[in-house]
């Protein structure tokens, strides 16, 4: 029994040391991780709505959004959209004008299969934007669906649908909530 206590103690000490080291690393990296995420988000917002100079965060229902302001004028909204893709959740930011027409969008994170679903974010040689996402621009987010304004990627129908449906659903819900 004495030996067992010794073993337990030994393991306990090592676990404690490990936890302390990790807590320290976590505290050091936390602001850097948060800054990296913030920077990425701001870059995405800037790319989606180049004419806006200020993004005011807000929440309505479950939806997180930014009001895109150009000086005192409201240019549109940027919505955080979560879709359920083939491999897991995908996090998208979509920018719309006040009428719901899509001005731009970025996929921040996805877990789709490399080579198939990952094509939703693929940039063709010589182009600057993913070809799948380009077709959303200028269309009304509340009416789009795969087959109606949006063409799915061959071999990645589920992923294409996930992006389209998530945007359609979130924007529709958002516009309704904002009208109230």
């Amino acid at each position: 029994m004495n030996q067992m206590t010794k073993f337990g103690l030994m393991l306990g000490i090592i676990c404690l040391a490990a936890t302390l080291v990790l807590a320290f690393t976590y505290e050091v990296t936390r602001p850097i991780i948060a800054a990296a995420l913030y920077r990425e988000e701001q870059e995405a917002l800037k790319a989606i709505m180049p004419e806006a100079d200020l993004f005011k965060p807000g929440t309505v229902g479950d939806i997180k959004y930014f009001e895109a302001m150009n000086g005192p004028a409201l240019v549109g909204y940027c919505l955080k959209v979560t879709g359920s893709g083939y491999g897991g959740y995908m996090h998208i930011i979509v920018g719309i004008d006040t009428g719901g027409v899509i001005k731009g969008l970025r996929i921040l994170q996805h877990m789709e299969t490399p080579g198939l679903g990952s094509k939703i974010n693929e940039i063709r040689l010589g182009e600057s934007e993913p070809y799948f996402l380009k077709q959303f621009i200028g269309k009304n987010a509340r009416t789009i669906s795969v087959g109606n304004g949006i063409d799915a990627i061959t071999g990645a129908t589920i992923s294409s649908k996930a992006v389209t449906d998530a945007i359609n659903k979130t924007v529709t819900e958002f516009m309704e909530k904002m009208r109230q």
Partner: peptide
């Protein structure tokens, strides 16, 4: 470290370094 608990100890050490690498990668 006594022979009998060496494997759990090794695992704890490895897990610590894995988490450090994970956090560093997320940050940088």
């Amino acid at each position: 470290v006594p022979e009998k608990v060496r494997i759990p100890c090794f695992i704890v050490i490895i897990a610590t370094f894995v988490t450090i690498v994970d956090l560093l990668m997320k940050a940088y």
